[in-house]
């Protein structure tokens, strides 16, 4: 797992041969950092300044770009994104941990087919289900509600989370479970009182993975939601761009607002964040 553990190295002086590499690193650093800096800088400029003096710092910081962006609709998208993301995380963790418990603590033969059923879901590309899901959600009258995002997001995040949490549950010693049984705990009680509290780290990992997905998902968000009232940030930004047309200041400020939660979370909780983000590929 990722760790910032300091390795026990002797300090090498920067030798001459490393200079070209350092230059490459710095160039790449600039390629990444400058556009990010440009967004921050431009979010405080007037539209004309953004277009004409693209390299210049804002003459007078236009803080009202942020309040304008918030007022023109970002606030609604932001709240929708929070509602959808939090509900999805909650649903995924509860359902996945229940499923993981079922798949790791019982010795029943048919459960291995359930496991295959779940693992198959890992491979499925959500786009394949787009058209039928659209029809299904319409038929269930769920399209254009929060559920139209929460349900598909939860479903498509389930397999990964079940497998992650299951791996963790499998590592919990049998004795702990057995002593709980001796104390008269039912399975549900064992799950709720022992397994769930013990698995906080893996739950956080799952929560981060799910949050990242739900906060940024785009395709379902533009197709399953018609109304401005329920749009999440990624889709909302598109509507925001169309609505503002040439009013770039607030648009760029809106882009900053949209990015801030995850970037800040990453900067302040790098370790957990990276553990979460890499778990998706390494599988525990």
């Amino acid at each position: 797992m990722y760790g910032v553990k300091p390795r026990n190295h002797r300090r090498d002086a920067l030798s001459l041969s490393q200079v070209p590499i350092l230059i490459i690193l710095l160039v790449y650093f600039a390629i990444i950092a400058y556009p990010l800096f440009w967004i921050l800088m431009s979010s405080l400029k007037t539209t004309e300044d953004i277009s004409v003096n693209i390299w210049a710092l804002p003459k007078v910081p236009q803080w009202h770009n942020y309040t304008d962006a918030w007022r023109f609709g970002i606030s609604g998208y932001f709240i929708n994104s929070i509602i959808v993301t939090v509900s999805t995380i909650f649903a995924v963790l509860v359902i996945a941990s229940l499923g993981a418990y079922g798949l790791s603590r019982f010795k029943v033969s048919w459960l291995k087919y359930v496991l295959i059923f779940v693992m198959g879901g890992m491979m499925l590309n959500p786009q394949v289900c787009l058209i039928p899901l659209y029809k299904l959600l319409t038929a269930l009258k769920l399209r254009n509600t929060y559920w139209a995002l929460i349900i598909p997001y939860t479903t498509f995040r389930l397999p990964l989370n079940i497998l992650l949490i299951r791996t963790f549950f499998l590592s919990i010693p049998k004795e702990i479970e057995e002593s709980a049984k001796l104390d008269g705990c039912t399975n549900l009680q064992t799950y709720a009182r022992i397994f769930v509290p013990m698995s906080t780290p893996i739950m956080i990992t799952g929560a981060i993975l799910t949050a990242y997905y739900a906060w940024n998902e785009f395709m379902f968000a533009i197709i399953f939601i018609d109304s401005n009232k329920y749009r999440t940030i990624p889709a909302g930004l598109m509507a925001f761009r169309d609505a503002l047309q040439i009013n770039w200041g607030p648009l760029i400020a809106g882009m900053v607002i949209a990015s801030l939660p995850l970037v800040l979370f990453f900067l302040f909780a790098q370790k957990q964040f990276i553990r979460g983000m890499t778990a998706g590929s390494v599988k525990g």
Binding site: I95, A96, L98, G99, G102, L103, F106, G121, I162, Y191
Partner: peptide, 9 residues
């Protein structure tokens, strides 16, 4: 335990 997952999937 596995029913909610199986149903959703």
């Amino acid at each position: 335990f596995v029913l909610p997952s199986v149903l959703l999937l």
